[in-house]
Simulated scan of single mutants.
Amino acid sequence: MTPVQLRYRILTCTLLTVAAVYFLVPVYWLVVSATKSSGDLFGSFGFWFANPRPLQYLGEVLTYDHGIYVRWFANSLLYAGVGALAATLLSAAAGYALAKFPFPGREGIFNVILAGVLIPGTALALPLYFLFSGFGMSNTYWSVLIPSVVSPFGVYLCRIYAAAAVPDSLLEAARIDGAGEWRIFSGLGLRLMIPALVTVFLFQFVHIWNNYFLPLVMLSDSDLYPIQLGLTSWTGYADRQPELYQYTVGGAFLSVLPLMILMTVLQRYWRTGLTEGSVKA
């Protein structure tokens, strides 16, 4: 290894280490704080344990107010799981159609969808509220679920990936064998697009799971709250009920576990997609 290569390797490892510390330190603090009482949360060193009782404190989070946190957790799973799955399938169908079926105005439609990536979700929250309110659907599960199934970035990614990963010759061979377009899409297109679909699903799941402003605008019934909105409501009452500080921290710790599990389970599909192009047929 030459001195120049050694310097680049040291620089790369240093930058990666700094980035890892930057992202892992808040998680470590959250793990430590979830084991503390409200008094120890403010009266002890923040990055070390003090009378840790994780099972007791997390159990109190789950049972407080007749288990309202469990309901919020289930609501978040519903919003994020169903919304991300529907958004992934819709993005796959739209991206596949835009990539493989030439029709008048195709590029114009794609450009309009691409422009949607630049529009922040907060700018659409109030118009969506007035729209759903006009249909009598505000303060319902649908008012959060329906906007979550639209992902302009997902359509863009699926179109780009379908154009590169789904060969036209393979589609023509399937048509010659008598397969219909739906069967081709479901049997060939979706399988070849799995790495892109996993990416869209994960991005959309994380986006919906962490979404705060849309549920804040749409929902007034606390039984419909997702975790993010529920924890914020606890914080608002923490001055009068100090134990809610500890419940909020414990609830935040529990809320990141599904994202960690999802990332661990789905990352192998990314590795598969990255290595497919390096293997010769």
Results as ranks from 00 to 15, higher is better:
2 T>P: 09
2 T>N: 15
3 P>R: 12
3 P>G: 07
4 V>P: 00
9 R>W: 07
10 I>P: 01
12 T>I: 08
14 T>G: 14
19 A>V: 11
20 A>D: 03
21 V>R: 00
21 V>M: 13
23 F>R: 04
25 V>R: 04
25 V>E: 05
28 Y>I: 08
48 W>G: 12
48 W>Q: 12
50 A>S: 15
50 A>D: 04
53 R>I: 03
61 V>R: 01
67 G>L: 05
71 R>P: 01
73 F>P: 01
75 N>R: 02
75 N>T: 03
77 L>P: 00
81 G>H: 06
91 S>N: 04
93 A>R: 03
97 A>M: 10
101 F>T: 10
101 F>Y: 14
108 G>H: 11
109 I>K: 01
110 F>H: 08
119 I>Y: 05
120 P>A: 10
123 A>N: 02
124 L>E: 02
133 S>L: 13
138 S>K: 06
139 N>L: 04
141 Y>W: 05
142 W>N: 08
146 I>H: 02
146 I>M: 13
155 V>K: 01
157 L>Q: 02
160 I>R: 12
166 V>W: 05
167 P>D: 14
170 L>Y: 10
171 L>I: 15
174 A>D: 05
183 R>W: 06
185 F>I: 03
188 L>P: 04
193 M>V: 12
198 V>M: 11
203 F>M: 14
206 V>Q: 11
209 W>K: 14
213 F>C: 07
214 L>M: 14
216 L>P: 01
222 S>C: 05
225 Y>C: 09
230 G>P: 13
231 L>Y: 07
233 S>I: 06
241 Q>C: 02
245 Y>I: 11
248 T>V: 13
254 L>G: 06
255 S>N: 14
267 Q>Y: 07
272 T>C: 07
278 S>H: 07
278 S>C: 10
280 K>G: 15
